[in-house]
Design a protein around this nucleic acid. Structure first.
Lengths: 169, 169
DNA sequence: ACTTTACGTCAGCCTTGTTGACATTCCAAG
DNA sequence: CTTGGAATGTCAACAAGGCTGACGTAAAGT
C-alpha cells in the first residue's frame, strides 16, 4: 500500500484513482465534521449534566419505543453495565420509564416519558437544524453521495442495524 | 420546526424539501459510520494499550511535523492537561520527540520518531483501507458529495483548521 | 523590572467505557 | 416437579480520558 490506486473490486464500479492524500483529507473531514455534528447537542446536554451516552440512549429509545435493554445494547455497542448506569440516571430523573416485560419478566421495556420526549425533541431539533443547513448548503446530489459513502463505511453489522431502524419506520 | 421544509437560505441554492425523517436518517448514518471509521485503528491501539487520544496526537504530529503544543491543542480542541498526559506517554515510549524551539525557547516542537512514524503508518493504512473501500463502493460523484456535506457540517473554526491542514501540504 | 506567554505538573472531579459478582427469571432435561 | 443452565438485568469497582484550578519555570515582550 501507499501508492496511487486504480480499478475497483466491484465489477461494474467506476474506475477510481485514490491517492493517500485524497484519502487523508476524507479522514480529516470525518474527524472535524463529527465534532460539528455533536457540538449542538453537547452544549444542551452540558447544561443538564448529561453526556453523549444519555443522548444516544434517548435517541434510540425514542426511535424504538418499548425496546429491551439487550436490544439497545446491541445498537449502541457498549456493555450492559455501561448502559445501565446511564439508564439508571435517566429513570431516576423521570425521563425514561422501564416496564417489566409481560411475556418475559426478565426483560425491561424502555419508553420515554413526556419529559423524556421533550428533551429528545430539543436535542434532535438542534441536530437536525445543523443537518438541514449542511444539506441545503451542499445540495441534493451531494446529500445522496454523502449517504452512499457513509453506508459504505459501516461494518456489515452496523449497516444491518442502520437498515433495521430505517425500515422500522 | 417539525414540518417539512422548503427553500434554502442561500439565494442561488437548489430547492430542497427535507423531512425530519430524512434528516434523522442522516444523523443515524453519521453515528454508525463514525463507528466503522474508528473501528480499525481502535483495534490496533487496543493491543498497545493506547486510545483514540494517542491516535489523534500521532495523526496531527505526522501531518504537521514540528508543530508546537499550543498549536496541537487548538487543533484537537482539548485542554493542555489532557493532551499532556497523552504526550507524556508517547514521549516516554519513544514515539514522539519534543525539541525546544530555536527561535522561541519556550515552545516545544513535536516530531514523530521512526517508531512513531511506523505506528502512524500502521494506523493510517488501516483507516485509509476502509476509506478507499467506501469511496470505491460509492463512486466518485458520491465522494464529492460526501466531502461537500462534511465541510458544510463543520463549525467555521473547524473548517478553518481543516483547510489550513489541507493547504499546508 | 514587570507582565505576559508557553509549557509542564499536581490534585481532584466527572463521564463513560471496562470486568467481575450476583439476583432474577425462564426453560428444558431428568 | 425439580433442578441446572442460559438469559436478562443490577450493583461494585476500576481505568481512560475529558475537565477545572492552582502553581512553577523559563523565556519574551514592554
Amino acid at each position: 500500500m501507499g501508492e496511487a490506486e486504480r480499478a475497483g473490486p466491484q465489477g461494474g464500479e467506476a474506475l477510481l484513482f485514490l491517492t493517500d492524500e485524497q484519502l487523508r483529507q476524507g479522514i480529516e473531514a470525518m474527524f472535524f465534521a463529527y465534532r460539528g455534528f455533536t457540538a449542538d447537542p453537547d452544549r444542551i446536554l452540558a447544561t443538564l449534566s448529561y453526556g453523549r451516552a444519555h443522548h444516544r440512549a434517548i435517541h434510540f429509545i425514542h426511535c424504538v419505543p418499548g425496546t429491551t435493554v439487550n436490544n439497545l445494547l446491541s445498537i449502541l455497542g457498549v456493555t450492559k453495565q455501561s448502559l445501565n448506569r446511564v439508564l439508571r440516571t435517566l429513570i431516576a430523573d423521570g425521563l425514561v420509564e422501564s416496564r417489566v416485560g409481560r411475556l418475559d419478566k426478565r426483560e425491561r421495556h424502555l419508553y420515554l416519558t413526556e419529559r423524556g420526549e421533550g428533551l429528545e425533541r430539543q436535542l434532535s431539533d438542534a441536530q437536525r437544524a445543523r443537518m438541514r443547513q449542511a444539506y441545503r448548503q451542499a445540495g441534493p446530489e451531494a446529500v445522496a453521495g454523502f449517504r452512499k459513502v457513509l453506508e459504505a463505511m459501516m461494518d456489515s453489522e452496523q449497516h444491518r442495524q442502520y437498515r433495521a431502524l430505517r425500515d422500522s419506520r
